[in-house]
Design a protein around this nucleic acid. Structure first.
Ligand code: SF4
Ligand code: SF4
Lengths: 148, 148
DNA sequence: AGAATATAGCATGATTTTAGTGCTCTTTCA
DNA sequence: TGAAAGAGCACTAAAATCATGCTATATTCT
């Protein structure tokens, strides 16, 4: 349906939360308390993200998760890819071929679309994602002008 | 999963096919024969497209479907919207609100992403979609032309 | 050492979405 | 009037997604 899964959304919400929490470790408990999302599922998502080294985990008191890189350098594409696989838009866009490809006349076109969609995700950083709602003042035009 | 449904793909394939068939009416039978996709499902898709006036239908011998506007003027966005609804990327992007929106910190960001994705779809016309594969003379077309 | 905190790991059931299909009716053209 | 072609209708099957409980292991602090 051209939608992100909840997994991705939860993951992004959590990451955005962490991005704002500075560089301290953030526990699942905290995130769940603030964001009101299923604890168990979030835990799994974060585990995956930790496995892919998008976040690092520390156990024990005071532990939790933390971004491994600045939010400005983490693209949505990377997160989404980890959380729901490489392919977007259609099935043939991640290398795996579909039964119809021999008779499919739009394969190349679709792949082009997929590429563009992906580049949207690639150009969108976690920083931007959380900045949109961060209680920051809005010198938006300036910031954008410089950032882009 | 950020994927189009089969409905959309089938629809697009069919439309692309029609775009290449000139302005003659094309029957479901023909399309199915060439494209090897489920007949019944395609019929339903085309019915929807006809309801939304993306194609027009004519019954009876020699009838079928035909694009109502030049392929250059039909955006993927329009087709996809008809076939799988307005929302993309997340649930809150089509107006309907989700339970989490009060605590969701990324809503605006996601909406921005959705907007961009949508504009990718908006800028992509059916003409482009089929052009990607059209200009290439197919080495297989001979065999196909004779076989079918 | 022991208590408390927090992630890691595991399997399964419920729900939702998507895909697929058969048959009959109506319209249109020759 | 007969053949072609879309219109309408309801259901089943399969897959993806969401959600959840419990135990184990690692870390820190007292
Ligand atoms: S080959 Fe065609 S039908 Fe198959 S996934 Fe790609 S675009 Fe879709
Ligand atoms: S409000 Fe947040 S969680 Fe709900 S659909 Fe929008 S982005 Fe996703």
């Amino acid at each position: 349906m051209l939608r992100l899964t909840k997994r991705s959304e939860y993951g992004l919400m959590a990451l955005a939360f962490m991005a704002q929490s500075g560089q301290a470790y953030t526990s699942v408990r905290e995130i769940v308390a603030k964001l009101r999302i299923p604890r168990r599922l979030l835990a799994e998502v974060l585990k995956d993200l930790s496995f892919s080294e998008i976040v690092e985990a520390v156990r024990g008191p005071g532990g939790g998760y933390r971004l491994t890189c600045p939010a400005e350098e983490l693209s949505l594409a990377r997160v989404v890819e980890v959380l729901e696989g490489a392919g977007t838009v259609a099935q043939c866009t991640d290398g795996s071929r579909c039964d119809l490809s021999p008779s499919c006349t739009i394969q190349e076109g679709i792949n082009l679309v997929a590429q563009r969609v992906k580049s949207v995700l690639n150009d969108f950083t976690l920083a931007e994602l959380s900045d949109c709602t961060t209680p920051r003042p809005q010198p938006v035009s300036l910031a954008q002008g410089l950032a882009v």
